[in-house]
Amino acid sequence: MNVLVGQILKMNQVISIKEFIKFVGVARSTIYEMMDEYSPYYDPNFPKKVKITQNRIGWSAWAIHQ
């Protein structure tokens, strides 16, 4: 995994898709493919999304770190 340079993530922090992309180092489309149960790239161990608002999701920094 890549490390965010110059930024500190708190383990109880919920991060956005842009921060997730920087941290993991994969494209947005790849993240959504890995979350999709019907995709050949589905990963059941992939961190689960957290619903922030009706139209916005994020991920737990602690889950990503694991």
Rank of each mutant, 00 (worst) to 15 (best):
L4N: 07
K18I: 05
S39L: 07
N12T: 13
S60A: 06
V50C: 08
L9R: 01
Y41M: 01
A27N: 09
N45M: 01
W59N: 03
V3G: 04
F23C: 06
W59G: 06
K48H: 05
K18M: 01
Y42A: 03
F20K: 11
G58I: 00
T30F: 02
Q54E: 05
K49M: 01
V24K: 15
V26M: 15
V3Y: 05
V5W: 14
Q54N: 05
G6Y: 09
Q13S: 11
G25N: 06
V50N: 03
W62A: 14
G6R: 13
L9M: 12
V3P: 00
M1P: 09
L9P: 10
S29T: 14
N12M: 09
Y32I: 07
I31A: 09
P47V: 05
Y32W: 13
Y32P: 07
A27H: 07
H65V: 05
R28C: 07
W59M: 00
Y41D: 06
G58D: 08
K18E: 13
E19G: 02
S60K: 15
I52S: 12
F46N: 04
L9F: 11
I64S: 01
N45D: 08
N12K: 10
W59I: 03
E37S: 14
K49I: 03
Y41E: 02
S16T: 14
F46R: 01
N2R: 08
V5N: 15
K49F: 02
F20I: 02
L4P: 04
V24H: 05
T53Y: 00
